[in-house]
Design a protein around this nucleic acid. Structure first.
Length: 654
DNA sequence: ATAGGGTTAG
């Protein structure tokens, strides 16, 4: 009601504070007034200004984002947004004439947008979705007469830019921001630390932190938490750890969010064990773990393949009476399914429905997947029907696990039918459909069809992922087309699809099968050089090939090189001995077993059993008996004062 | 503020 007569004070003009910024676009866009354009109508038909304005054009009025600037302490919720807000938002359409339209509009209604108004608009959902418009609006507003952006304008703009990870523009805006020399406020610091943390600009984040302290602001727990989160998101785990320690010994103690964020950090760094231990720290400080604590840890255990731990966390959650999110059920059912315990997964599902939860598509999908993986497609399809009866629409992932299950069971025609159904009914066909089918066809010896499906993906422009490539490479290797497989490997590189440890494992064993030993070794080296961590399975492929081609020492040498990389294939020696025995090369197997002793390692009792059985199978029952009744590999033989284990080699001596 | 679906070798 006071509007129009009492003008708010205009911010001081500060033109010298707008340096030219080469990285910033739009700064040269000059708004052109366009009087011929049909202007929008005023939202204020009874605006007193229009009554009193006569001959002299009245000076433009600063508009605020909220109508009522009463003395009562008002929160944002009970304030009434000014009708100008929606009018200005309507003009922000991203068209080339946007700036011109804004200028014409403001000129026509004699308004100027105040810094508060600009900041409010920058926080609107519309601009959060379109950083390019936000940036253009910001630079347009900055050119208003006697206007200077407030600290909130910069902070809001940076928040918008951070949503899309636009690091370059953030740095550019930040440079300008720093030159403005604002006094840091708590809310600005919080928002900046959050934005910069989310995009990983840690040095600038720390600048904000220092600046905040310089301005005498004591960081509260929120500020600390944004800092920890920023550090964690940028994988500065140790720095985050130090901040947490500082909090633990300082005045602002960590809360559940701080711990959850730190736990997320450990999980991201693959240190699940350390993450788990944090629960104890929390309990020591009387900070109760909440559902997010448990969800973060459950997800990490699930990803690590530690399904037991995942299950244990779920039970702990239940015992504590915490609310169990839907996603927890997907994880538990998924974990049980991967352990082959689909019935137990179903029991969890039943318990869930008894509590009144209806479940969701993801939970049904996890359940269907677990039945499909255990070869129980009838149950899987029954659940699929039940899900639809409950009103859940299966999505591409659900169809994906159905197709995958059918392929695993060799029911390729049915799987193809599902693929056809999805193609015809608007279900997204993802790479998993194809990799499952290519794998299934390959396993059934139908390589030509597998190749055809792969080419279909190329034609239709579906991206091929490593799963598809690996499945086809495997299919080709299995039917002796090793050179075609190598060609595909090359194509994979050319297309920029990252090879995985599976790719190398398949090719290494394929090359050894064709007695192309040198090439197989080259593959191994290539894998190591590219920083792909070998697995126990990949070493098995290599060691089998090397052992069978008589290069046992070489295999042992490579095995020794794995330990510093943190790869310890537990059963490596056993596997090698097994392979040698199977090939009837028992003498070499014994030599290898002795080699283990020489390295000061334990020979598992199982190795003796393997050797005894191998000797029996080879028809050498005399030696088998001799080994059975001897202390070879177990007992000790006194040589001077040195105790030595009895060597397997003795078996072949008199 | 902090967590959130599925896949392949032997």
């Amino acid at each position: 009601m006071r509007r129009g007569l009492l003008r708010p004070l205009a911010p001081l003009s500060a033109p010298h504070l707008h340096p030219s910024l080469p990285l910033c676009p739009y700064k040269d866009v000059v708004p052109l007034p366009n009087p011929s354009q049909p202007g929008p109508t005023s939202p204020f038909t009874s605006n007193p200004r229009w009554v009193f304005a006569t001959s002299l054009p009245p000076p433009a009025e600063w508009v605020e984002p909220f109508n009522d600037v009463s003395d009562i302490v008002a929160t944002r919720q009970n304030l009434d947004p000014s009708p100008w807000v929606s009018q200005i938002l309507n003009l922000l359409d991203g068209s080339p004439a946007m700036e011109a339209n804004l200028s014409v509009y403001c000129h026509k209604f004699l308004i100027k947008l105040s810094p508060n108004f600009v900041s409010f608009i920058l926080q609107s959902n519309k601009l959060r979705e379109d950083p390019a418009i936000a940036l253009r609006f910001f630079y347009w507003a900055g050119k208003q007469k006697s206007y200077a952006h407030s600290i909130e304008c910069y902070v809001s703009l940076i928040a918008v830019l951070s949503l899309r990870g636009d690091v370059e523009r953030i740095l550019c805006v930040l440079r300008e921001f720093k030159e403005m020399g604002f006094v840091m406020t708590v809310s600005a610091a919080n928002s900046l630390i959050k934005s910069l943390g989310s995009v990983g600009i840690v040095d600038e984040l720390l600048w904000v932190w220092r600046r905040m302290k310089e301005n005498g602001i004591d960081p509260g727990v929120y500020t600390y938490n944004f800092l920890v989160n920023g550090l964690v998101n940028s994988m500065f785990i140790e720095s985050a750890e130090r901040v947490l320690e500082a909090m633990e010994s300082g005045r602002t103690g960590p809360d559940v969010v701080t711990y959850n964020t730190m736990i997320k950090g450990y999980c991201k760094a693959g240190k699940t064990k350390k993450a788990m231990e944090k629960i104890k720290d929390m309990e020591l400080r009387n900070v109760e773990p909440d559902k997010i604590t448990y969800m973060t840890l459950m997800q990490a255990c699930y990803s690590d393949g530690d399904f037991n731990a995942c299950l244990g966390l779920y039970h702990e959650m239940e015992e504590k009476g915490l609310e169990i999110p839907d996603h927890a059920y997907s994880l538990v059912i998924g974990a049980l399914g991967k352990d082959g315990k689909c019935a137990e997964g179903y029991a969890v599902f039943e318990r869930m429905t008894q509590k009144g939860y209806k479940g969701n598509v993801a939970i049904y999908t996890a359940l269907i997947d677990s039945y499909g993986k255990s070869g129980n497609m009838e149950w899987a399809i029954w659940l699929f029907q039940r899900m639809k009866n409950e009103g859940f629409e299966p999505d591409d992932v659900t169809y994906g696990v159905i197709v995958n299950g059918l392929c695993k069971g060799g029911r390729l025609e049915e799987a193809m039918e599902y693929l056809g159904f999805c193609k015809g009914n608007g279900v997204v066909v993802n790479a998993m459909f194809y990799s499952s089918l290519i794998d299934g066809l390959g396993k059934a010896g139908r390589v030509d069809e597998a190749e055809k499906l792969f080419e279909e993906m190329v034609e239709k422009g579906y991206p091929r992922d490593s799963y598809c490539y690996n499945a086809l490479i495997d299919a080709l290797v299995k039917c002796g087309k090793i050179d075609e497989a190598l060609g595909l490997f090359k194509r994979m590189e050319e297309e920029g699809c990252d090879e995985t440890v599976y790719t190398y494992t398949i090719l290494i064993s394929g090359l050894f099968n064709e007695h192309r030993n040198e090439e197989a070794l080259k593959m191994w080296d290539m894998m190591i050089n590219r920083g792909i961590t070998p697995t126990a399975a990949s070493f098995r492929a290599l060691s089998i090939g090397l052992c069978l081609s008589g290069k046992i020492a070489r295999a042992c040498k490579i095995l020794d090189e794995l330990a510093p990389m943190g790869v310890i294939p537990e059963t490596a020696f056993e596997d090698m001995i097994n392979v040698l025995c199977k090939a009837g090369r028992i003498k070499e197997a014994c030599k290898l077993a002795d080699g283990i002793v020489d390295r000061g390692r334990e020979v598992p009792g199982r190795v003796r059993t393997v050797l005894i059985n191998a000797l029996r199978k080879a028809g050498n029952s005399d030696l088998a008996m001799k080994l059975l009744h001897s202390k070879i590999g177990i007992g000790y033989d006194r040589m001077g004062s040195i105790k030595r284990r009895v060597k397997f080699r003795l078996l072949f001596e008199n």
